[in-house]
Design a protein around this nucleic acid. Structure first.
Length: 582
RNA sequence: GGGAUCGUAGUUCAGUUGGUUAGAACGCCGGCCUGUCAAGCCGGAGGUCGCGAGUUCGAGUCUCGUCGGUCCCGCCA
């Protein structure tokens, strides 16, 4: 094999007449009898190489057998292309290499799909041959973006005195929160490790140990169902800081996020990032992950529906509406589709009225008299040609369904510019949320989050009313990071477990070592975790998390390439003391 | 756990109210061709219609089940 002198993206007219060697994959072959053009590709680019029967020293008959994705090593002389033969689409398009000698390092079997076109096969096939799909331009670029993001993160944090520390992957199961992936112990039959949902307790313990500023780019595991932006194993940028309050952490993370966007995409994010309370996000956007790229808001419609003759809304806990500019053009069928959309969120229906000639027409407009219509139009600044969508239900359903409708309409109307990035901090989350199913309170983030109030009595009496020191970073509607100031007092920590309905014995068994550690001089501390894959998704301009992970899993958590998960040998199970129930 | 949707040559797809031998393009194989860059022209091979039942004289087409992909709800401290 001739060692390459250049990569396939490197040669320009400055190398003319030089003898060079290139190695790479056959990206395309064009046969013309006595002359054969081959595009040879590696991760740096493509170069046209030319086999001419007169100047090629090898067996020309074998050249005719070249096919897609064969691996070649070629040696030849760089030649300037004729003016009319220049290819402006590739960086090396002004030159070509006239091959004198070559070696076929490896022939490729016929391909299951075309490397030049990622859309030439369905996703299941591409996942089975992921190693081939990773050769496509798009995925090569995404992996490079991911790499640059790692480097930007490590450089920034290291320059800011953060220490990178690894934490265990085999840890104790703490069944608060997501379902754990469990690993059976061979040495202790019947006992299990859990894979970390996040290194939460470890990083807090590192603060107790005095490391002051910690970070880790770390794999986390949650055995829950998947989504387009969710994988069962995913990567976090895990961060923790001592002697800080919420604003310190948020400020540092703004710097980090801005640095990443600048380094990776050369985009300047507007600083400081705006802040919004959880309550405002829910009432204005119907979600705690608002996409700020378009102005389409939820409005309180209850005062108007109460004055109308439309009885379906009179008993609704909340009635809200959104106004879509130029939405009056929507056909019955389009409205029907949007109705289907909101029904997924348990909304009973989607009421509407169209604005025309100073009035409101169609839908439920007949229940609103002229005077009321004028008030509505004035209050919400409705113009002719707009449509008003209204939902009345329990507050949570109204917000959730209209919040989702907002997104659906923005997509439909193309309100979103893909080059726009709008970060926002969401703050003042409630500490707890009551769960009707298991009749107890759940932490909105995790049970180590500090309440904003020190009023323990109030905390016990009305847990829902107390906000926490949690903060989430949302960019374009994606939750990119979430964190909080932690409890650093073991007594307060016990009270929180108590409110969560974890009894003392159970708390001691599950979290005893941790509560104990808080007694030995714990500095006030707080931190955050970035969803690294989602961040890279945004940077790479895709809405599919599989596009930024080298070897992802399907929505049923399988790896189609290697066939995981799979059965294991009886002996392996025996070692672990495990019997499979049929 | 639930809903929607998809599964037909190697690949992407078409396939009418259930009816003769399941088609096209790209790819693959063979041939021609000295300036292409989505090369072109000629010829050829290639099918368990995801799998399994059922209805029917007859199923790619209808029904049920099952496996797999995608998107969503629940879930994701």
């Amino acid at each position: 094999m001739n060692k390459r002198t250049h990569t396939c993206g490197e040669l320009t007219s400055t190398s003319i007449n030089e003898k060079v060697s290139l190695s790479g994959w056959v990206n395309a072959v064009r046969f013309h009898g006595q002359v054969v053009f081959v595009d040879i590709r590696d991760r740096y680019g493509k170069t046209q190489i030319v086999y001419n029967q007169d100047s090629f020293n090898g067996d020309f008959e074998l050249v005719k057998k070249l096919s897609m994705e064969d691996v070649l090593s070629v040696t030849g002389v760089v030649q300037k292309r004729d003016k009319n033969a220049i290819n402006p689409n590739i960086a090396t398009g002004e030159v070509e290499v006239i091959v004198s000698d070559h070696e076929i390092l490896n022939e490729s079997a016929p391909l299951p799909f075309m490397i030049t076109d990622r859309n030439s096969a369905e996703e299941d096939l591409r996942l089975k041959y992921r190693f081939l799909e990773l050769r496509t331009n798009e995925l090569q670029n995404n992996i490079k973006v991911r790499h640059r993001t790692y480097q930007a993160v490590r450089t920034f944090l290291s320059n800011n005195d953060f220490l990178e520390v690894e934490t265990p992957v085999l840890m104790k199961s703490t069944p608060e929160g997501a379902r754990d992936y469990l690993v059976p112990s061979r040495i202790h039959n019947g006992k299990f490790y859990a894979l970390p949902q996040s290194p939460q307790m470890y990083k807090q313990l590192l603060m107790v140990s005095g490391f002051d500023r910690y970070f880790q780019i770390v794999k986390c595991f949650r055995d829950e169902d998947l989504r387009a932006d969710r994988q069962p194993e995913f990567t976090q940028i895990d961060i923790e800081m001592s002697f800080v309050d919420e604003n310190d952490v948020m400020a540092k993370c703004e710097e980090l996020t801005s640095t990443i966007f600048k380094e990776v995409k050369n985009i300047d994010l507007v600083k400081p990032f705006p802040k919004m309370t959880y309550a405002d996000a829910m009432s204005k956007y119907g979600t705690d992950c608002p996409d700020l790229r378009y102005d389409l808001f939820l409005n309180d419609f209850k005062p108007f529906s109460d004055k109308s003759d439309f009885k379906a809304f009179s008993s609704a806990e909340s009635v809200m509406g959104i106004i879509v500019p130029d939405g009056a053009k929507y056909s019955r069928k389009e409205i029907e589709l949007l109705t289907e959309h909101v029904k997924r969120y348990k909304a009973k229906g989607l009421a509407w009225m169209k604005a025309d000639e100073g009035k409101l027409n169609g839908g439920i407009s007949k229940f609103f008299d002229d005077d009321l219509q004028i008030q509505i139009r004035k209050k919400f600044n409705i113009n002719d040609g707009d449509i008003l969508f209204i939902i009345g239900d329990k507050n949570k359903i109204t917000q959730l369904s209209l919040g989702s409708l907002r997104i659906a309409i923005a997509r439909k109307e193309g309100f979103v510019k893909s080059t726009d990035f709008k970060p926002v901090w969401i703050t003042d989350f409630p500490m707890f949320e009551y769960n009707d199913e298991d009749k107890r309170y759940h932490s909105l983030q995790h049970p180590f989050t500090q309440p904003k109030s020190n009023d323990l009595k109030k905390l016990k009496e009305s847990p829902e009313a107390i906000p926490s020191k949690q903060y989430d970073l949302i960019i374009n509607g994606y939750e990119v990071a979430g964190g909080s100031v932690r409890i650093h007092n073991s007594e307060q920590q016990k009270i929180i477990f108590d409110i969560l309905g974890i009894d003392k014995k159970e708390a001691k068994e599950r979290f005893g070592f941790f509560i104990d550690a808080l007694k030995y001089g714990t500095p006030p501390h707080g931190g955050i975790a970035f969803g690294f894959d989602r961040l890279v998704m945004l940077l790479a301009g895709t809405s599919n998390i599989r596009d930024v992970i080298a070897f992802p899993k399907t929505t049923s958590a399988m790896s189609l390439m290697d066939g995981a998960p799979s059965s294991v040998f009886q002996d392996q199970l025996k070692d672990l003391g495990i019997q499979i129930k049929k």
